[in-house]
Amino acid sequence: FHVTIHVGDITFHIHGVSEEEVKKLEELVRRGADWREIKKTIEEIEK
Protein backbone atom coordinates (compact mmCIF):
# COMPACT_ATOMS: atom_id res chain seq x y z
CA PHE A 1 0.00 0.00 0.00
CA HIS A 2 0.95 3.65 -0.42
CA VAL A 3 -0.03 5.74 2.57
CA THR A 4 -0.20 9.49 3.06
CA ILE A 5 -0.81 10.82 6.56
CA HIS A 6 -1.46 14.47 7.37
CA VAL A 7 -0.68 15.51 10.94
CA GLY A 8 -1.28 19.24 11.26
CA ASP A 9 1.15 20.83 8.80
CA ILE A 10 3.23 17.68 8.40
CA THR A 11 2.64 15.12 5.65
CA PHE A 12 4.15 11.63 5.68
CA HIS A 13 4.33 9.52 2.51
CA ILE A 14 5.07 5.85 3.00
CA HIS A 15 5.40 3.19 0.31
CA GLY A 16 5.25 -0.57 0.58
CA VAL A 17 3.15 -0.69 3.71
CA SER A 18 1.42 -3.97 4.60
CA GLU A 19 -2.29 -4.07 5.43
CA GLU A 20 -1.43 -4.83 9.07
CA GLU A 21 0.82 -1.75 9.25
CA VAL A 22 -1.88 0.41 7.65
CA LYS A 23 -4.25 -0.64 10.44
CA LYS A 24 -1.60 0.21 13.04
CA LEU A 25 -1.15 3.69 11.55
CA GLU A 26 -4.92 4.23 11.28
CA GLU A 27 -5.25 3.36 14.96
CA LEU A 28 -2.53 5.87 15.92
CA VAL A 29 -4.20 8.63 13.91
CA ARG A 30 -7.63 7.73 15.27
CA ARG A 31 -6.49 8.04 18.85
CA GLY A 32 -4.85 11.36 18.10
CA ALA A 33 -1.17 10.42 18.38
CA ASP A 34 1.20 13.33 17.87
CA TRP A 35 3.49 13.49 14.84
CA ARG A 36 6.54 12.23 16.79
CA GLU A 37 4.82 8.97 17.66
CA ILE A 38 3.58 8.55 14.09
CA LYS A 39 7.06 9.32 12.70
CA LYS A 40 8.60 6.73 15.04
CA THR A 41 6.09 4.11 13.88
CA ILE A 42 6.77 4.96 10.22
CA GLU A 43 10.52 4.60 10.78
CA GLU A 44 9.94 1.14 12.27
CA ILE A 45 7.81 0.15 9.26
CA GLU A 46 10.45 1.36 6.78
CA LYS A 47 13.20 -0.79 8.34
Results as ranks from 00 to 15, higher is better:
Glu21Ile: 15
His13Thr: 08
Lys23Thr: 11
Ile38Leu: 07
Glu19Pro: 08
Glu19Phe: 14
Val29Asn: 02
His2Ala: 06
Trp35Phe: 11
Val17His: 03
Val3Gly: 03
Gly8Ala: 04
Leu25Arg: 00
Val29Lys: 05
Lys40Trp: 06
Val7His: 10
Arg36Asp: 15
Glu43Trp: 05
Glu21Asp: 15
Phe1Leu: 15
Glu37Gly: 01
Phe1Lys: 12
Ile45Lys: 03
Val7Met: 10
Ala33Val: 08
Arg30Trp: 04
Val17Leu: 14
Lys24Leu: 15
Leu28Ile: 08
Arg36Cys: 11
Ile45Gly: 03
His15Lys: 05
Ala33Gly: 06
Thr11Met: 06
Glu44Val: 09
Thr4Asp: 09
Ile5Ser: 00
His13Val: 10
Glu19His: 13
Trp35Val: 14
Phe1Ile: 12
His15Val: 10
Thr11Gly: 02
His15Tyr: 15
Asp9Thr: 09
Thr4Arg: 03
Val29His: 04
Thr41Met: 14
Ile10Glu: 09
Phe1Gly: 12
Val17Gln: 04
Arg30Ala: 14
Glu19Leu: 14
Gly32Phe: 04
Ile10Tyr: 14
Val29Ile: 12
Ile45Asn: 03
Glu26Asn: 10
Glu21Asn: 14
Glu46Thr: 15
Thr41Glu: 07
His15Ile: 07
Arg36Phe: 14
Gly16Cys: 08
Phe12Pro: 00
Phe12Asp: 00
His15Asp: 07
Asp34Phe: 02
Glu20Leu: 11
His6Asn: 08
Glu19Arg: 05
Glu44Cys: 03
Lys23Ala: 11
Ile42Gln: 01
Ile42Ala: 03
Ile45His: 04
Glu46Ala: 13
Asp34Gln: 03
Phe12Leu: 09
Lys47Asp: 09
Ile14Leu: 13
Lys23Asn: 10
Gly16Asp: 12
Ile38Pro: 00
Lys39Asp: 06
Glu43Gln: 12
His2Trp: 15
Thr41Ala: 10
His13Leu: 03
Glu43Ile: 13
Lys24Val: 14
Val17Gly: 04
Gly16Tyr: 14
Glu27Trp: 04
Arg36Gly: 15
Glu44Asn: 07
Leu28His: 02
Lys24Phe: 10
Thr41Tyr: 15
Glu44Thr: 10
Thr41Asp: 02
Lys23Gly: 10
Arg36His: 15
Thr11Ala: 05
Thr4Gly: 01
Arg31Gln: 13
Lys47Thr: 11
Glu27Met: 09
Val17Arg: 02
Lys40Asp: 12
Glu46Val: 14
His6Leu: 09
Glu20Met: 13
Thr4Ile: 10
Glu37Ile: 03
His13Glu: 12
Gly16Thr: 10
Ile38His: 01
His13Met: 02
Arg31Ala: 09
Arg30Phe: 07
Ile10Ser: 07
Thr11Val: 12
Glu19Ala: 13
Gly16Ala: 11
His6Phe: 06
Glu27Ala: 10
Lys39Gln: 15
Leu25Gly: 00
Ile5Thr: 00
Phe1Ser: 11
Gly16Gln: 04
Glu27Val: 05
Glu21Gln: 14
Val3Trp: 02
Phe12Gln: 01
His6Ser: 12
Arg36Trp: 14
Val17Ala: 09
Lys47Val: 12
Ile14Asp: 00
Trp35Asn: 05
Gly16Trp: 11
Leu28Glu: 03
His13Pro: 01
Val29Tyr: 06
Ile14Phe: 07
Phe1Ala: 09
His6Ala: 09
Gly16Arg: 03
Leu25Phe: 07
Glu27Arg: 06
Lys39Asn: 08
Ile10Leu: 13
Glu27Asn: 10
Val22Ser: 05
Val7Glu: 02
Lys39Ile: 12
Gly8Arg: 02
Glu44Arg: 10
Ile5Pro: 00
Thr4Phe: 03
Lys40Cys: 07
Ser18Gly: 09
Ser18Lys: 13
Ser18Cys: 04
Ser18Tyr: 05
Val7Ile: 13
Trp35Pro: 10
Glu20Thr: 11
Glu44His: 12
Glu26His: 13
Gly8Lys: 03
Leu25Asn: 00
Leu28Trp: 02
Glu26Ala: 10
Asp34Val: 00
